[in-house]
Design a binder for these strands. Structure first.
Lengths: 189, 189
DNA sequence: CGTGTAGTTGATAGTGCTCAATTTTAGTGG
DNA sequence: CCACTAAAATTGAGCACTATCAACTACACG
């Protein structure tokens, strides 16, 4: 489990290309999948300096057997990861570059807010533009240009590793972002 | 659970666009996610004429509580779905159109073979090119053209709703397809 | 002050989309 | 068995989007 910092799950390709398939933030159980999938075909790496916690598979097994409720929570955690991945698939397949970036920034804000490490429409985002490209399936150059366009709308800013969302609702509207898939408790914003 | 036929999980966008985020084939538990996620933000629809089985959430809950092993199998099922989605993300982000199509055809062959409804490198694929486009995040026209190029390589054919894989290994090589993520039993091919 | 990484820019070549038309296929009823 | 119809597949043309390559700038660090 990630306690502090960001971690990325990624695939590497023959030509040196890379695709990040999941971004894990503090509070995320990173490798519950691996508890069930004996063979993993990809790697998880820290994005920045991370603090992580470990548990033995044995203790997870015992916990799930002794407490079905806890078992369901673990299961739920992986199911939500799946919902996030489906949202990413839709982003990558059908949204414009600007929408993809906006969608990602919206998603991450809500996830970090839920984790208690973001508020006031701002958060630290320790990614390089190259990493954002690997995450969204785009080249750095293109990310850079579309990011400039996005900044010029004044809806959002990202500099010095900090994201400032000036108008969350408008940004979400732009990205067709619907937070339902994150399964967060619905609270008045 | 799908007993016969294909079903697709998809998101719809404002502009009428559609993205298929998962394709379910016979033997797939389609809505285990929904057992845990009380709110779903997308739909599941039959692709062709389907035969489906139903179970109550109650009986799933009872089964998982009485038999942790069965519970782990259900969980595993959703985790494998997640692995497939991650593979799709990589496809959509970093593979060429021809590779994406080839990757999809390879994946589906192995899944159908495991379900016992495909063998001899051939299977029935009841999708239109439009649906394949919605699945891979591409336009019909583009799908059509790249499909022709793929056919011209003689590695694979697809006509009359039947796919014929003439050289699975070469097709997999082209698509950088590694079946690990499907978590199928490894059998000599 | 040198060094390396990240960010930015311009130019060019692919890649993929849209629109619109045409051909083929499958299914229907006579 | 044939005519009719709707859906699916195919084609061409033009344009928009995105990648690549190659510089160049900004910034942090020792």
């Amino acid at each position: 489990m990630v306690m502090r910092g960001f971690a990325a799950r990624s695939h590497y390709l023959r030509n040196g290309g890379r695709q990040i398939t999941a971004l894990h933030v503090p509070g995320d159980f990173v490798d519950l999948h691996a508890y069930l999938l004996k063979v993993m075909d990809h790697g998880v790496a820290a994005i920045n300096s991370c603090e992580v916690g470990f548990t033995s598979y044995d203790s997870i097994r015992r916990a799930t057997e002794q407490s079905p409720h806890l078992g369901r929570l673990f299961w739920l955690s992986t199911v939500i990861d799946g919902a996030v991945q489906r949202a990413w698939i839709t982003c990558m397949g059908r949204l414009s570059t600007k929408q993809r970036i906006a969608h990602f920034l919206c998603e991450l804000y809500l996830r970090l807010e839920a984790a208690g490490i973001a508020s006031d429409n701002r958060y630290a985002l320790p990614l390089t533009q190259t990493q954002l490209g690997d995450l969204l399936g785009l080249s750095v150059v293109h990310i850079n240009r579309k990011l400039q366009e996005l900044r010029s709308t004044r809806l959002v800013d990202w500099k010095g590793g900090m994201v400032f969302i000036n108008d969350f609702d408008a940004l979400a509207e732009l990205a067709e972002f619907d937070p339902t898939y994150l399964s967060l408790r619905i609270e008045p914003r």
